[in-house]
């Protein structure tokens, strides 16, 4: 118990003194997971809208696959991405193994099905008549898609939060494709594991607390936006 308080005290000490290493690790976490979430939003919302609005054979199967992908184990993603991008792999010429770029790619793969799955559920949840009504009022196709997105903005923001929350807290893929290199690919989760195995439990707890604070701040901002126009 004492250790816990010590760790929390250490967290605030590191934050108040703006320890350069901790600041760097925190910013890198934010940058990598932010980029990954952004990429997953473009692909996930795009694909989700398409799948939800277009009828085609095998649609149910595809949605089942995406829903399964929402629980994709990060370590499996990490393994496959590693095999693809290592020097002798099919994408080895890119030379991106053990770089932040590889971490962004792996995290984007983890977050995309989450965003797509929630998007599909959100759009399908809207009443069918709404689409017909919008089209009947003379809207173009793009305008209709835009209005449907606006109509389901609450669940779509939830998709952003779920995607971001999923990748900022994951470790399996980050450590495999990033390698936990000091000052380069070391993020909050991988640093926490390393400090634990070094026996620096107070620093490990401190990094954990910072991760929670970061996650909370981002979600608080998103929730505020989400709830703002509800009133």
């Amino acid at each position: 118990m004492e250790l816990l308080f010590e760790g929390i005290r250490e967290a605030f000490r590191l934050l108040i003194h703006a320890d350069p290493e901790v600041v760097r690790i925190t910013l890198l976490s934010l940058k990598i997971s932010g980029c990954a979430t952004f990429i997953s939003l473009i692909i996930g919302i795009g694909a989700g809208m398409l799948i939800a609005l277009v009828e085609f054979p095998g649609k149910r199967l595809l949605i089942s696959i995406i829903n399964t992908g929402m629980g994709l184990p990060p370590v499996v993603v990490g393994l496959f991405v590693t095999i693809f991008i290592w020097r002798n792999g099919p994408l080895g010429f890119l030379g991106i193994l053990y770089t932040p770029t590889a971490m962004i790619a792996a995290q984007a793969i983890i977050a995309t099905p989450i965003v797509a799955g929630i998007t599909i559920a959100a759009i399908q949840h809207l009443p069918e008549e709404l689409r017909l009504q919008i089209l009947a009022l003379g809207a173009t196709r793009t305008q209709m898609v835009w209005m449907l997105m606006k109509e389901s903005r609450l669940p779509l923001l939830a998709a952003v939060m779920a995607g971001f929350g999923g990748v900022i807290s994951e470790i399996g893929a980050s450590i495999m494709v990033g390698g936990n290199i000091m000052g380069y690919t070391r993020v909050l989760t991988t640093a926490t594991v390393m400090e634990t195995s070094r026996g620096n439990f107070d620093v490990a707890i401190a990094l954990g607390v910072i991760l929670l604070l970061l996650s909370f701040s981002v979600n608080f901002i998103l929730t505020t936006i989400q709830q703002y126009d509800k009133k």
Partner: peptide, 8 residues
């Protein structure tokens, strides 16, 4: 940002 991070 993504590319910048990877270029060395």
């Amino acid at each position: 940002i993504a590319l910048h991070a990877g270029v060395r």
